[in-house]
Computed example of a mutant assay.
Amino acid sequence: MATPTLADVAGWLSEAEHVTVLTGAGISTESGIPDFRGPQGVWTTNPGAAALFDIDTYLADADVRRQVWQLRRSHPAWTAEPNAAHRALADLSRAGRLDAVITQNIDGLHQRAGTEPDRVIEVHGTIHWVVCLSCGLRTRTPEVLERLAEESDPPCLACGGIQKADTISFGQRLRPEVLEAAVDAAERAEVFVAVGTSLTVQPVAGLCELAAENGARLVIVNAQPTPYDALAAAAFTEPIGQVVPELAAKVLAATR
């Protein structure tokens, strides 16, 4: 059997009524946001950095929280712009060709590219909001970052509790309602496209298998091999900024 081409995959997407996309850190690297596990990833080049993202360590150690707040202040998401892959998915979404974009990213670039916010499922949360771990108050991140000049570990203004970015750290469970939305999108997909994710973090990686078990064609776009390549109907290792826009252009041309 011939290996499916990008044109074949475009045909699948054009014919499908339900398409779901899962994105990981690899889609944002061309926007200047490093991934975590790639050759130049944050944790590849600095393995000790992973400890800063453990919820128990964060809660127990004020020095860790101070380090994390400084990292948040300098996070590249504040200056990053959506790239061609983000814009291509937004084009598909606006054309009604995508049910949902499930993203492991916290940068908000899908929404900035134009994907409708109600179609973006942020399974690992967002850097753009801060949450109090005691009372649950949510505050826009820039408002908290402005306080760093005076307070290196700014407490909640409502109750004095510990605050952190509204993201999922190691040791924290995904929000049940967010995971349920992601599962629903995977189960109804006729084509499930995983873009720029190593597919090693569960339970999100398992959405690929869930989609395939429900009859979806699984398509993987990632520079490195993933544990789900053998399950994929098609896989591409070319640059995401090349593959995704080309795929979107073919789908839109076929459905006009």
Rank of each mutant, 00 (worst) to 15 (best):
T3M: 12
P4S: 11
D8K: 04
H18L: 13
V19G: 10
T23G: 01
A25R: 01
S28H: 00
T29P: 03
P39I: 09
P39W: 09
Q40P: 04
G41N: 06
N46V: 06
G48C: 00
A51V: 11
T57E: 13
D61M: 02
D63A: 04
R66D: 00
A80G: 05
N83G: 13
R87S: 11
A90T: 00
A90Y: 01
D91F: 04
L92G: 10
S93V: 05
G96I: 01
R97D: 06
R97L: 06
R97S: 10
V101L: 11
T103I: 01
I106G: 02
I106R: 03
A113Q: 06
V123W: 00
T126Q: 05
I127V: 08
H128I: 07
W129E: 08
V131R: 05
R138K: 11
T139W: 00
R147F: 00
E151Q: 08
C156W: 04
K164T: 06
T167F: 00
I168G: 14
R173F: 14
P176R: 15
E177A: 12
L179H: 13
A181K: 15
A182Q: 02
E187R: 10
R188Q: 10
T200S: 14
V204K: 04
E209D: 14
E209Y: 11
N214W: 13
V219S: 05
I220G: 01
T226A: 09
L231G: 11
A235Q: 15
F236L: 08
F236R: 03
E238A: 15
V243N: 07
A248D: 06
A249H: 03
L252S: 03
